[in-house]
Amino acid sequence: MSDTIQLNFTVPGDDFTRAGEASSEVKGILKKLGLSPMVVRKVAIAMYEGEINMAIHGGGGEITVEISDQWVQMVLADQGPGIPNVELAMQEGWSTAPDSVRNLGFGAGMGLPNMKKYSDEMSIDSQVGVGTTVTMRVYLNL
């Protein structure tokens, strides 16, 4: 098969309650494609964590999901403040989320570590003051 299915989503920067809508829709599409429950779960969790990150830190942004016969790729791009120290941000429990966010049950410092854990490949391209783009891939292993 030559081409892929591409899905585009806009994540609002000021509304937590809407974070998760995009991952939920992707989850529904992957189930209809008959992908294994494990693959669906990995994509759903990795993408949901990414959406939350974009809502909390990135001021919202754009997500492009591409489905091929080999993998599901998620590119999450925001124009937020950027991550000064990616290595530190990858540590479990490291969080810069403000109290207002923690009070809602988010900001436990598990976002990026969970994204890393549930995706098969992940790269972070971040520039302070410019924004962050996270690219994740989950392989289908058909």
Binding site: M1, I5, I29, K31, K32, L33, G34, L35, D69
Partner: peptide, 23 residues
């Protein structure tokens, strides 16, 4: 046991084509 009654096709490639057409 899982009953995949909601999937578009048991063959992934066919399901992909159906998904594109559906969209």
């Amino acid at each position: 046991e899982y009953e995949p009654v909601l999937e578009l096709d048991p063959d992934f490639r066919v399901a992909m084509e159906k998904m594109k057409e559906m969209r």
